[in-house]
Amino acid sequence: MHPIAWERKWSDRRAATHRAGEKKLKIEGSYEIKAARERVWDLLNDVDVLRDCIPGCESLTPAGPDTFEAELSVGIGMIRGSYSGRVRISDRKKPGSYRLEIEGEGPGGFIKGDATITLQATGESVTTVTVDGDGEVGGMLARVGQRLIGQASKSLMKQFFDCAGKKARG
């Protein structure tokens, strides 16, 4: 599975036609956390865990029901940027799924993500967390970073779930 891929369409095989605007940033991935589903649910909904585990999170302050103001300093390698924005959790169906929206803006542009997070018990004390949604990156990052954005977001998601997995262990 490719957690993030620029979607392409090929109208037919014998005549390949292609046009602008059929490209979308997909945010997809699935991660295994060694803990029971309820435990994982609690972790993923715990502000302290979010603050510790969201890569580059400098502050996360509640601002209304299920909404947080966030200051992020995110980056990979030399590429780094500061974003301030919002994290919103909605459509909570404990312990099975919820919707997560992230939105951040910095001097270089903006990042947005809107995904459904599904938790499935896939073994005894094993939960598979599936992320499925769309993202948008605007500004300089989008214009010069398209080749890196897919792997970068995947790497950041992995950092997050690795961190959550560690918390689950103890």
Binding site: H2, P3, I4, A5, W6, R8, Q146, R147, Q151, K154
Partner: peptide, 11 residues
């Protein structure tokens, strides 16, 4: 593992 995909080449 996961192949890169971008506007030049799909995974």
């Amino acid at each position: 593992g996961d192949f890169n995909g971008d506007i030049h080449a799909s995974p």
